Simulated scan of single mutants.
Amino acid sequence: MHFTPIATYSLIAITVVVSLLGFNNRGLLNRLAFQIGPVLRRKQVERLLTCSFVHVDAGHLLMNMVTLYFFGPQLEYIYGPVKFVGLYVFCSLAASLVVLALRRNQMQYSAVGASDAVCGVLGAFCVLFPFQNIYILFIPIGIPAIVFAGLFLAWSSWAARSRKGNVAHDAHIAGTLAGALAVLVAGSGLFTGA
């Protein structure tokens, strides 16, 4: 039976189009970005989700969309397109809310990118397929998903504490844990109990 992961492809297409528009329109990028000030002061809560559909550059976009392309279809096959999109949105919102709580006093804080939701997909994948090998670019040896998840979370935690680079490591951690916990708690019904 042939399976087309229409939700995964749709999320990729929407994110690519919106991001490309944002590359040439800083006003759009700023309007969609997760920014503490506008979320708290002007109640622009849509930013908690819209930030996942815009990226700051092509490399950032490519890394997230390649990861979604490789891991999304397997989850979509298991849960179906509607539940998969629900998981994606849940991970994005959960990560944004965690970052909002952690950085609520940093009114100038701003972040963009699908990493929060994509990390959630990766976290869910690692729970569902803990012993499936994950291959990292240019490294020919597979790493079991559960080991990869542990290493990724450890590295992200260290990077968040060290404030390495202009990367929202806390969103990566929160997204990964949201995806993993969603699958652990909701199981095969994923939010519906079905």
Results as ranks from 00 to 15, higher is better:
Phe23Gly: 06
Phe152Leu: 15
Phe70Gln: 13
Ser115Ile: 00
Tyr109Cys: 05
Ala95Gln: 00
Lys43Pro: 02
Ala178Ile: 00
Thr4Ala: 10
Phe84Met: 11
Val183Thr: 10
Leu100His: 02
Leu122Ser: 10
Gln74Phe: 12
Ala114Asp: 05
Ala114Gln: 03
Ala194His: 14
Ala180Gln: 05
Val16Asn: 04
Ser96Phe: 02
Val54Phe: 00
Arg161Cys: 10
Ile146Ala: 13
Leu93Arg: 05
Val147Leu: 15
Val121Asp: 07
Cys51His: 08
Leu93Ile: 13
Gly22Glu: 02
His60Gln: 03
Ala58Trp: 13
Ile78Phe: 09
Leu151Thr: 14
Cys91Asn: 07
Ser10Cys: 13
Leu128Gly: 14
Cys91Ile: 01
Gly59Val: 08
Ala95Phe: 00
Ala117Met: 02
Ala154Met: 13
Val85Glu: 01
Asn30Trp: 11
Phe90Gln: 03
Tyr135Thr: 14
Phe34Gln: 06
Ile139Arg: 10
Asn105Cys: 04
His2Ile: 06
Tyr135Met: 14
Phe129Val: 03
Phe191Gly: 11
Ile36Gln: 03
Gly142Phe: 11
Leu49Tyr: 00
Phe34His: 07
Val85Ile: 15
Ala160Glu: 10
Asn64Tyr: 01
Gly22Trp: 07
Phe90Ile: 03
Gln44Ser: 12
Met107Lys: 08
Ala111Asn: 04
Ala159Val: 03
Thr15Asn: 06
Ile146Lys: 07
Ala186Val: 02
Leu181Phe: 15
Arg47Met: 02
Val54Asn: 02
Val121Met: 04
Ala58Pro: 07
Gly165Asn: 09
Leu151Ala: 15
Val85Arg: 08
Leu61Thr: 01
Pro38Gln: 10
Ile143Gln: 10
Leu20His: 11
Cys119Met: 13
Ile12Asp: 01
Leu68His: 06
Ala111Val: 02
Ile173Cys: 05
Val167Asp: 11
Val18Arg: 07
Phe71Asn: 05
